[in-house]
């Protein structure tokens, strides 16, 4: 039996519980919608325009930097698992790997891409 089957069951039960709670609330709760109640809440002021606002490009930059580091660290996990049984060679190898990426971080930093404004 695959251990992921248990995880799958966890996913299913983990969905059933919130669905059940929200379902019970849906059955018990009153339902009297009206246009004022349904309007979006913007501190009591009439909503202007749509909910879609244009975002800063900076969010995208941070997501990109994150993506690179995410992939990198995931690569390092097998290395870390094995590290206890390996010699200095593997350690140096991992350090070189990290340093190359730190160089990327430094480059991003020096270019001013890590500034929010």
């Amino acid at each position: 039996m695959n251990e992921w089957l248990y995880i799958g069951l966890f996913f299913i039960v983990g969905l059933i519980i919130p669905v059940g709670a929200i379902g019970v609330a849906w059955i018990l709760g009153p339902k009297k919608p009206n246009p004022i109640k349904q309007s979006t809440y913007e501190c009591g002021i009439e909503p202007v325009g749509e909910g879609w606002v244009q975002f800063k490009a900076q969010y995208y930059i941070f997501a990109l930097v994150f993506l690179v580091f995410d992939v990198e660290t995931v690569f390092l996990f097998p290395w870390a698992v094995k590290l206890g049984q390996l010699g200095m060679f593997a350690v140096v190898e991992g350090i070189v790997f990290i340093l190359v990426l730190i160089a990327g971080l430094v480059y991003t930093w020096r270019k001013g891409m890590l500034e929010w404004v």
């Binding site: 930059i61 990109l64 930097v65 190359v100 990426l101 991003t108 270019k111």
Partner: peptide, 15 residues
């Protein structure tokens, strides 16, 4: 190791 260089290249390119 080349993978790390590749990731570096991706980061530099994006920036």
């Amino acid at each position: 190791e080349v993978a790390s260089v590749l990731l570096l290249a991706a980061l530099v390119g994006a920036v």
